[in-house]
Design a protein around this nucleic acid. Sequence first.
DNA 1: TAAAGAATACCGTGAACGCGGTATTGTCCG
DNA 2: CGGACAATACCGCGTTCACGGTATTCTTTA
Lengths: 219, 219
Amino acid sequence: MVNRAQKTESIALWMVEDDALFRDGVRTLINRTPGFFCEHTFTNCEDALKLLETEDAPRILLMDLGLPGMSGIEGMRRVKELSPATDVLVLTIYDDDERVFEAICAGASGYLLKNSSGEEIVSALSQIIQGGAPMNAQVARRVLDLFSRMAGPKGKYDLTPREKEVLGLLVGGLSKRQIADKLIVSFYTIDTHLKNIYEKLHVHTRSGVVAKALKERLI
Amino acid sequence: MVNRAQKTESIALWMVEDDALFRDGVRTLINRTPGFFCEHTFTNCEDALKLLETEDAPRILLMDLGLPGMSGIEGMRRVKELSPATDVLVLTIYDDDERVFEAICAGASGYLLKNSSGEEIVSALSQIIQGGAPMNAQVARRVLDLFSRMAGPKGKYDLTPREKEVLGLLVGGLSKRQIADKLIVSFYTIDTHLKNIYEKLHVHTRSGVVAKALKERLI
DNA sequence: TAAAGAATACCGTGAACGCGGTATTGTCCG
DNA sequence: CGGACAATACCGCGTTCACGGTATTCTTTA
């Protein structure tokens, strides 16, 4: 059990983890660490969410991903909805692109693998409190790769400044007429610009332009 | 100087860094570390790129960002073009969104701040060799935030499965006729679906739909 | 100075779109 | 059982688009 002094001065953690062995190991580790205490543990997200309705949210939530019932990702999403200030530290065996991506999008503040040492886990908690995002280096590499792939190849099509301007308005949803009015030029001028843009981007429709511009961040 | 044994067995690093004090400090640190040696140092990207034309690329490149002449980001881009296998470790004082974002998109394999300890730098080199991406925890948090912001708010418009299907084809650039043919339904059916999609997304044009779908990742 | 590129402007035609209607069928849920 | 919703289908009208031309003016660059 946890004494009163710890409760008032220490940082509260909750943990969702279905593996009893791992759960108890981490709880013991945390409760031996000054400044932190493990307030509740759960074997599934549903129970944690239920308690969140009546109790104050913890500062940090340790979250497994492979869980019975609601997935850790979905659980994280709901927790962050109810308590955006809670930092969720993912602690899992999975490090595939899909899971890492989803976890980050769901608002994870860190991502450790279960092969992490006790030291690493404790250090991760401090880093989270300091506004950092502790990540397994392999996971971090995945994140960077995903990121740069997502940011894409930023195609180079040698659009002129004016063409980029027109492109921007096009993506904004304006018609040729509206673009012409906004730039105070003739309708026909915009028509010509569009023809040139289409040719440069190798597309034949407005939607094609918009898709390409957004996918390749041309604007 | 570096002896032959080190040269053949150790991992070669190059460094671009205009601050002489910091440069020499890190070089000494690396050359004292078994398994690594600092083969060349440069005060600007141009010199490094020139040498890259005639010499083998290093396994790791330590790159400053605030440099005279070509920026570290641009330099990194060019290095990665010439030698994609080279891992670039950014070592800088800047940790703003813009710079972090650009560095990742340019293909950085790690991002440390200059207040890192010697230990951290050396450990980062090992992590890079092991396929990890060493990152300052603050920077990592920035990356996660950027990432999840970029992934966006994933708007909820209650599109039906069929509507999502049509939306996908629409974004792919197909006309109503083509979508109808592909889904083996009447042109009019697609016309109706489109009307409903327009209403749900509050847009009035194909381009508007494409823009919204891509920006909010509806597909 | 000549060539190249950027920005501007005009026209006509056939195709595609946006949107106002209306209507039938099937399924799921209260 | 009956309403809600999804998916299907049809029609017409006015607007907008895509694209084929051609052409002038002004920089920039070779």
